[in-house]
Design a protein around this nucleic acid. Structure first.
Length: 214
DNA sequence: TGCCAGGCCGGGT
DNA sequence: ACCCGGCATGGC
């Protein structure tokens, strides 16, 4: 089954996800860091505490004393690292683009990707998430769920690199940011609900319960 | 009760 | 070019 077909089935089975769950581009940036290797539920708690600190705006976040920022993001786990990472990406956002998404996304996304990857704590997935979900850039996001689902359905080989997976997905889906957005969101939703790490078979999976390699 | 979650980094082969 | 341990909380 092609990714295009998987996408169609998921859309029908799960409905449009309407991602990213955030009120502003800056919130997407914060959420992308906070959810690194962490359940969204935990990241959300951290975001709620940042909101109470008034730190959902770039300059307000930078004005927060480091210890206080770390305490606020504690529910997201890895909180000392994540506090530093949030500070780093926010410093960049303010210094380079005045903390404004409209200025940031006036630049070509390939350039932005390089800039993001140069920030400590921002790797490929976090960068691509920001580009796609904060700026609507046509980049497909590869994450743990994407790898697992595509691998279990044999759309990629066991040794495929994330770059290769990304190319494969983008070729299969065409140059369409809205579709990358929905497709990735659907894969995550599918993964969360039906396709966990140690499941030998996808039970009740909308794509069909097929035996797969773990 | 362990096990795991929408990664990234630094140090080791 | 990989592989690994560290980072940490909260839910099932």
């Amino acid at each position: 089954m092609s990714l295009r077909r998987i996408y169609g089935r998921l859309l029908r089975a799960l409905g449009p996800q309407g991602w990213w769950p955030a009120r502003s581009p800056f919130e997407v940036i914060l959420g992308a860091v906070l959810t690194q290797a962490t359940r969204w539920h935990n990241a959300e708690q951290a975001l709620a505490r940042l909101r109470r600190e008034g730190a959902l705006r770039p300059r307000r976040l930078l004005a927060l004393p480091p210890g206080r920022l770390a305490r606020a993001v504690r529910p997201a786990g890895f909180f000392r690292q994540k506090a530093r990472r949030l500070r780093a990406v926010t410093r960049w956002y303010v210094a380079r683009y005045g903390g404004r998404a409209d200025r940031m996304f006036r630049r070509p996304w390939r350039l932005l990707r390089e800039e993001l990857l140069a920030i400590p704590g921002i790797g490929p997935e976090t960068a691509d998430t920001i580009l796609l979900y904060a700026g609507g850039a046509p980049v497909f996001v590869v994450d743990a769920y994407t790898r697992r689902v595509l691998r279990r359905h044999r759309l990629i080989g066991p040794r495929a690199t994330d770059e290769a997976i990304q190319q494969t997905a983008m070729r299969a889906l065409g140059d369409d940011a809205a579709r990358y957005n929905e497709c990735h969101a659907l894969l995550v939703e599918l993964g969360k609900r039906f396709c966990h790490r140690r499941d030998p078979v996808c039970g009740r999976c909308p794509l069909g319960a097929l035996p797969h390699v773990i």
